[in-house]
Design a protein around this nucleic acid. Structure first.
Lengths: 220, 220
DNA sequence: AAAGAAATTTTGACTACCCAAAAAACATAC
DNA sequence: GTATGTTTTTTGGGTAGTCAAAATTTCTTT
């Protein structure tokens, strides 16, 4: 059974693979994301290669094997079901559950996860709109546009927020910009690199391009 | 913050202190209970001494300091609240929750534990009848007699089972011998070292002295 | 094509665990 | 009160994960 450290590396590589379209993930990137020294990553990549979880080309980068991808999906499933459980059943705030789930994902048994899944009615997404992998590790990412790419002046539904920082989520909550809510993008300014968004029933908000790219909305 | 290994050692010393009336706990005993080599324990006792969690007298044994005892109680609180949560809220069987709690006790935050506590209505005991320490670490053990010391032929209530082995608990469940249920001790035989117990509504059962000593009943 | 910059890997070292087996201390018997 | 046996500690060694800094490779610039 993989250690929780190994699970964290797999999750990280999985995430970086998604956000860099089929490219190999560099060890430097992983080091930065994991908050460890570059040499530490190189060492870990060797052991992950030996256990058949990644393909590693020195100086080039790494890629998950099928086994590695399945394992990462299972960790993601645990993480996201736990997050939803904490919000729905335990009444915790969506802005605070990520840190908690980051630890619990390595501790809950499959048996307990299955119970949560049943109790929650086999949910498709977590409180941030992130899709929950199936028991077999199948994961279907939507290709919803972000506030940076969606239509202007149309009534849209927020579907997902891909930024887990507590303070950012709290801000969105205050402005009624959580998944399920509706909003209109009023304009984008290339010069100031900001997006003006008017949430349904919330205070209008001006977001930087990078922040805006982390809020996804339904296709029409 | 202590590692989960340290927490496990503290729990173990705490348990052994209880069951050996004020005596120092020997390193050999700890090694046996923890399933590690004797030398490993000696090394750990030194680091626990340095962090002020135990008093250690070489060749004699160890004793928890106040800090060590408080910390052990907090781990116990997490363990027992988690157990009760798994039974009451998640619908798991009392015979299987111990193993799960053994891991979760190191992973759940104080914030989550407090929520469970509220959700369960500030319970006093876990599914096995073990008392749940308060938030401050106060722990009140009852001095209920076991099936070995209680009155004969009296209607008694099971209050606690101090044996966490899954198979043993399953057996007791089949015989309706869980905390809350009633039973009568019909006789004790010193020669065969067995106790005959008749549970209310369950099949009578003959237990060895050692097993019988792990089932506690209310005083009258 | 060579120099300099940037990224990556290697090396040596550290912490927190763990074990096996030798050495030391303690307990008991005679 | 010495010999024997048991328990505990010490010693040497191993794995997983980490870092800092040196060495190497790759990329960029000219």
């Amino acid at each position: 059974m993989p250690t929780s450290t190994v699970e964290d590396y797999l999750k990280c590589i999985h995430r970086e693979e998604r956000s860099s379209e089929g490219q190999l993930v560099s060890t430097g990137r992983i080091a930065q994301e994991m908050g460890v020294a570059p040499g530490t990553v190189t060492a870990m990549m060797k052991t992950l290669t030996e256990t058949g979880l990644i393909d590693y080309e020195p100086y080039m980068g790494v890629r998950l094997t099928d086994r590695g991808r399945t394992l990462a999906a299972h960790v993601l499933r645990r993480h996201r079901l736990v997050e939803l459980f904490l919000v729905q059943i335990m009444g915790m705030d969506w802005s605070e559950v990520h840190a908690e789930a980051e630890i619990l994902e390595h501790a809950v048994s499959d048996r307990l996860i299955d119970r949560m899944d049943v109790m929650l009615g086999h949910p498709k997404v977590d409180p941030h709109g992130d899709p929950i992998p199936s028991r077999t590790g199948a994961l279907e990412e939507s290709d919803d546009p972000s506030l940076l790419a969606c239509a202007l002046n149309r009534d849209l539904q927020i579907t997902r927020v891909t930024d887990q920082r507590t303070e950012f989520l709290r801000l969105l909550e205050q402005h009624k910009l959580m998944p399920g809510r509706r909003a209109v993008v009023e304009n984008r300014d290339e010069l100031t690199e900001t997006v003006q968004v008017r949430p349904d029933g919330g205070q209008p908000l001006r977001l930087g391009f990078h922040a805006a790219s982390r809020i996804l909305v339904g296709r029409e």
